[in-house]
Design a protein around this nucleic acid. Structure first.
Lengths: 218, 218
DNA sequence: GCAAAAGTGTTACTAGTACACCCATGC
DNA sequence: GCATGGGTGTACTAGTAACACTTTTGC
């Protein structure tokens, strides 16, 4: 067959929330090409594995994370995206909450960094383009309540949640209306704890009720 | 590299509306394996083409169609989906209006058939699974007004449109409310013509206004 | 006490839902 | 004239949008 020579790779953008900002996990390249540049995590596909197996391994081995919700995003096949070889990228997005990130943070041989999606560093290959595609994909996905719960499993405040939605929707929301909407959905309940240690009045912390609910928030 | 031997194929489900029913275009296989079964249109990927180029050629050569709106759907990489080779499928959905289908219908060497998505015939390979995935993907896409315009470029009646949405949403809609909603969006206008030749009162025909509008209908 | 951020209620407007009768055509 | 399917209006309900002052904390 003619497609001998076409290589397949997976590339995953793992997203979390840190201090009410959407962040993506990148790794710094330690080798040429693009040595010193940041890039998405990923791996070439082996003959006897599925894309999903491959990307699960990437998450564990390169990011040192588990419990990441992974979903396929898009497949890119431009002729010029590999440097020497013909290379097709199947991209994924991963979602994980920041508390699990803290717990699972461990040393491995990769230099990793979380970057605000509004402030992505210089990346190698076409990853800048892919990251922007992933961000659009993520934003659509996060309009759904089930996805939101992946980012905020517990102990979040409504102002935090609101700031994330303001990034997704790219507009400011009214605090009272936002609160009213969320509480009226009967999805969340107070934990009784407060978000202390910041300036200003401490915010009440909430958690999702165990009964799962689907549907879009906006 | 290890992925020598992994073949890539494109597979496309082309959708249209015929008599208010959503239909998908399949071809009957003239050779083994699965000789006599129906299957999606598609082709193996060559070294020097993108997935999008490949699928555009499939549409022209196998379906005999042009003016099809094509969008990438999902990439399937199960180890057992090829029969002898390892084969990964990148799937696409295509949308075309029925009038263009009529105009472009031409003879080629492929036996083609349009099938109601509620009544798909026996298909080869894993295409039954892929078709169902595509149908879900299509339904989400058709909630958007821009996609709807691809199916109904002109001279459609509101009852026709309503029947399509009833299939997408899988519930019955009230005629008066549907009409009120569509007219209130200021998207469509009467053509002055009527849908004659059917039993009952002829329906007014509409067309979309030239100003494009985005957003979701439901 | 002052700066910072969170919590709270009411009103007006807009969109969605429910529902029953008349109209135009073919036979 | 009757069967078929299309067109129309109103009342009710729910959701969204606009808007300002008070509360709790850290310093």
């Amino acid at each position: 067959m003619e497609d001998n020579g076409i290589l397949l790779e997976t590339l995953i953008g793992i997203f979390t929330i840190e201090h009410s900002k959407i962040k993506v996990l990148l790794t710094r390249r330690s080798e040429e090409p693009y040595k010193g540049y940041w890039s998405l995590l990923g791996n070439d596909l082996a003959f006897n594995e599925t894309l999903e197996n491959n990307v699960t391994d990437v998450v564990i081995e390169q990011a040192g994370l588990s419990n990441v919700n992974v979903e396929q995003c898009h497949t890119f096949s431009n002729l010029d995206r590999g440097l020497e070889d013909r290379k097709i990228a199947v991209t994924f997005i991963g979602i994980i909450d920041s508390k699990t990130v803290e717990l699972k943070r461990q040393q491995n041989s990769y230099e990793l960094g979380w970057f605000d999606i509004e402030d992505i560093p210089k990346t190698g290959f076409d990853h800048d383009y892919l990251i922007n595609y992933m961000i659009d994909f993520l934003k659509k996905k996060l309009l759904n309540i089930a996805s939101l719960k992946l980012l905020f499993p517990s102990d979040f405040s409504l102002p935090e949640l609101q700031k994330v939605y303001e990034q997704i929707l790219d507009k400011n929301l009214d605090r009272r209306n936002f609160r009213k909407k969320l509480l009226s959905l009967d999805l969340i309940e107070e934990t009784g704890y407060f978000n202390e240690g910041y300036s200003g009045r401490p915010a009440k912390l909430y958690k999702f009720k165990s009964l799962s609910d689907e549907g879009d928030l906006f």
